[in-house]
Design a protein around this nucleic acid. Structure first.
Lengths: 136, 136
DNA sequence: CCGTATCCGAGATGATACTG
DNA sequence: CAGTATCATCTCGGATACGG
């Protein structure tokens, strides 16, 4: 994680500078709708390593179907997070690469990944406990 | 961008010293599965303001059904992110509050919210452009 | 090679009614 | 008040075939 992790009282730290948007959406829903699906994060991670062809992405991301890779890259394109570069060769070739804003998002996603990694075990333990305490 | 450019400048910064987990999951999928649904983030945001009763949460989050609030709080409980405190009064009363780890996650979510807010307009613009360039 | 169209099942969510 | 049970609906994603 980055900085100043408070957790002083029960309130979440700071919250001050920027409004963490209450019940309403500050746009985070848009982002979560994008990140929340099954493949987008994996595509971002792969593209964060550099530009990739369509077929390279598909090989790099086991289990993704052609259809879902198309949909995922298209959505990322539409949001300006990924740039699509098509060459009029035969056979066709299409490269994808993160835009500046896309790299920025990828970095933020990595921060979240860091958090996940740091708390993975704690969550797994909590689940085990909960499940044990809730045998039917 | 030049066509033959390698990825050097397109890599995401630092990559944060920890492996950002490649195609495999470092646990981020678990977190995204939790955050990616329709209500969890809103519950986290509300609880980050302090402990809340079930009914208070429902009032604070317009549109959430009793069923989904139950499911959402239960999942957060199971993951150890939220503590459930039931009083044996009549009528019953149940308080929910973030645990330490829950506050930590909320803070991370706020960081993501900050990103969203900062790039909301850029994304909206990109979509507008894309849609304009893709009239059917 | 890349993208699209169609069909279909699984899971998520909403509406409603009921219980302690 | 808080939670459960049931049913209907809807979206997501997988499989497959086809097109440029």
């Amino acid at each position: 994680m980055s900085v100043t992790n408070t957790a002083v009282t029960s309130e979440v730290g700071g919250t001050s500078a920027h409004g963490p948007c209450g019940t309403d959406d500050c746009g985070i829903r848009d982002i979560l709708d994008r990140l929340g699906d099954r493949w987008t994060v994996l595509v971002l991670v792969e593209l964060s390593k550099g530009a990739r062809r369509f077929s390279a992405l598909q090989r790099a991301i086991p289990g993704i179907s052609q259809r879902m890779l198309t949909l995922t890259t298209k959505r990322l394109s539409r949001d300006g997070l990924v740039e699509r570069i098509a060459y009029a060769t035969i056979p066709p070739q299409v490269d994808y690469r993160l835009t500046a804003i896309g790299r920025s998002l990828a970095q933020t996603v990595f921060d979240l990944a860091d958090w996940s990694r740091d708390h993975k075990d704690a969550i797994a333990d909590a689940r085990t406990q909960w499940d044990a305490a809730n045998v039917r």
